[in-house]
Amino acid sequence: MGCAISGSGLTPRTAESRNTEDEAPARLTPDHIQLIKESWKVIQEDIAKVGIIMFVRLFETHPECKDVFFLFRDVEDLERLRTSRELRAHGLRVMSFIEKSVARLDQLERLEALARELGKSHFRYNAPPKYYGYVGAEFICAVRPVLKDRWTSELEQAWKTLFQYVTGIMKDGYLEEEQSKRNHTLTSSKERPDKRNTAI
């Protein structure tokens, strides 16, 4: 699907699969992949903590994101969020997705399929693509202190590129599901007989 690893790096999606308002496709180099894998070994030791920090920061910096989360929509107290079992569980699900993404960096077709399905499920949860980029930024803020002196500008660029890649595919999946739903609705409405033309 336009994904290939070569000596010059990886170009994740074909130009045809992107919307025109998207920026250029993400390019993960073999060096990026190596940096991400090495840093993940450290990050995963604090996986639950990072997940909570990431979402508390997300809700703090982008409170409109809470509208997508039914359980957290009316919670104003950040301390209550930090101790929420539901937030911890959701944070762990997101961190598990990141872990699976890292594990599939050498199997890009599998990574693309995973991200596309996640995008489709986000359509069903009514979580639009405009929020996806925020998660990557908050992930980076959450892991920087965990990695301490291991954090470099090259590592930051590697993670940013991975998130750009994954969220781009998620957006494609979201839009595919939205189009599929629209087509299904149109087909269903055409199949229903028009009661006004039915003889009495």
Rank of each mutant, 00 (worst) to 15 (best):
L147T: 14
Y174P: 05
Q44T: 13
F55G: 09
E177H: 02
P63A: 00
H62G: 01
G2Q: 04
D67Y: 03
G168N: 04
I47Q: 14
E86C: 00
L81H: 08
L78M: 12
R80I: 03
R73Q: 09
M170R: 04
R192S: 11
P145K: 08
P193H: 12
G9I: 09
P145V: 07
E177S: 08
S121Q: 11
A158R: 10
R57N: 15
S153M: 12
K181W: 01
L28P: 12
E156L: 04
D22G: 03
D149Y: 01
K49P: 01
F123P: 03
W40C: 01
G91V: 08
L118S: 06
T14R: 09
E45L: 12
M1A: 06
M170D: 04
E154W: 02
E177F: 03
G133C: 02
E16Y: 00
M1S: 13
S8L: 13
H62L: 05
R27L: 01
E64G: 05
V146I: 15
F59W: 10
L92F: 01
H90M: 01
S84H: 10
K171A: 11
A24M: 11
V135Q: 12
L105G: 10
R57K: 15
L108Q: 05
A199Q: 11
E79C: 03
L58M: 13
M170G: 06
H62I: 11
V143N: 07
E45I: 03
Y134F: 10
R27K: 15
S101V: 13
K148C: 07
P30Y: 09
H122W: 00
W159A: 07
P129H: 02
G7Q: 10
E21C: 07
R116Y: 09
R82S: 12
P25M: 00
S180K: 14
E138S: 05
I5V: 12
R182Y: 03
A89K: 13
M95L: 14
R88L: 06
A127F: 13
T14M: 00
A137W: 00
N197K: 13
T152L: 08
E191D: 13
F163M: 04
E191S: 15
K171D: 10
R13Q: 10
F139T: 10
I36F: 02
L105A: 05
A158H: 08
E23I: 05
T14K: 08
V68I: 12
I200G: 08
T152R: 09
E16V: 14
L35W: 11
A103P: 07
S188Y: 07
L10M: 05
K49N: 12
S17A: 10
C141M: 07
R27C: 08
A142G: 06
R116I: 11
L108M: 10
I200Y: 14
L114A: 06
D106H: 14
E154C: 06
T185H: 09
T83R: 15
A24E: 15
N19I: 03
E138K: 15
T187Y: 06
E99S: 15
L162C: 05
G7C: 07
S84P: 07
S96M: 09
A48L: 07
V68P: 03
R93H: 09
S6H: 08
P128Q: 01
I5A: 04
F97M: 12
T20P: 02
